[in-house]
């Protein structure tokens, strides 16, 4: 009877359950960060813990939505979904200084264009080197390397097979996950410590979730600047990859 009541609680109040579970993950992660003497790493550790839990949940349930595929934790899909994510990202812009944005305007725009082109070319070259020679396949994988949204958008537009589209999503997810994990470690080396480089970083990497997670773990004050350019990246990628990008590849293949 007791266990029945407990399971009712989890299924009746999924969002509340997700708040509680995230609080617990963060409590343990910040405690661990404190123990190893790296206070600033708390949120990075919490993100990695959540990714590990998502991996375990994915193996266990066979689903594609991590922890939220477990009935008791379905609230994660709401709390971590795009609605709350965007609402909270926008709020972080409060307090950003207009002068900083003006100063970073030029490097931010250059980074945005170069970032999309660079990722698309790198992804396409690797796809070609690994045995994909059809321009549609190469363009789709290259677009997936831009972000895991641009990949399927491009693949669908060009009529790629679902296996290629899945690969393109995987490439984008690898980028996003890798960004969340390694950003705080290399922040110093790439001088990621002021709003200008944060905007350049957002424009070059582009994956909104990766950039937001990586910056949150590095220095939460930089989140609004990086997230701002990153949100334009997927749009620009969806625009360039299936059109100019594909035509460019067709010249060579």
């Amino acid at each position: 009877m007791i266990s029945e009541i407990i399971s009712t609680l989890f299924t009746k109040y999924p969002l509340v359950g997700a708040f509680g579970a995230v609080a617990l993950i963060m409590l343990v992660s910040y405690w661990f960060a404190n123990v190893i003497g790296q206070k600033r790493m708390g949120s990075a550790i919490a993100i990695v813990v959540a990714l590990i839990l998502a991996f375990i949940a994915g193996k266990f349930t066979g689903g594609s939505k991590g922890i939220s595929d477990i009935t008791y934790f379905s609230g994660f899909a709401l709390l971590g979904g795009s609605m709350f994510r965007d609402f909270a990202i926008i709020s972080t812009a409060f307090g950003a200084k207009l002068e900083n944005l003006k100063k970073a305007g030029l490097p931010g725009s250059v980074a945005l264009l170069l970032g999309v082109v660079f990722s698309f070319i790198v992804g396409s070259l690797i796809a070609y080197a690994m045995g994909y020679h059809d321009p549609v396949d190469v363009a789709t994988i290259g677009a997936g390397t831009v972000t895991f949204i641009v990949g399927p958008v491009t693949g669908t537009a060009l009529g790629a097979s679902s296996e290629i589209i899945a690969l393109s999503i995987a490439a984008g997810v690898v980028k996003s996950v890798l960004t969340m994990i390694i950003t705080p470690f290399i922040a110093k080396a790439i001088k990621l410590d002021n709003p200008t480089t944060a905007m350049v970083y957002g424009g070059l990497i582009g994956t909104t979730s990766g950039v937001a997670g990586g910056l949150a773990a590095t220095d939460p004050k930089l989140v609004p600047y990086g997230a701002m350019t990153a949100t334009f990246y997927t749009g620009l990628g969806s625009l360039l990859c299936p059109s100019i990008g594909y035509m460019f590849l067709k010249l060579f293949l």
Binding site: V22, A50, S64, G66, V173
Partner: peptide, 10 residues
């Protein structure tokens, strides 16, 4: 962001 990391297809 932590919740979002938890729902990725890792």
């Amino acid at each position: 962001v932590v919740a979002m990391a938890g729902i990725q297809n890792v």
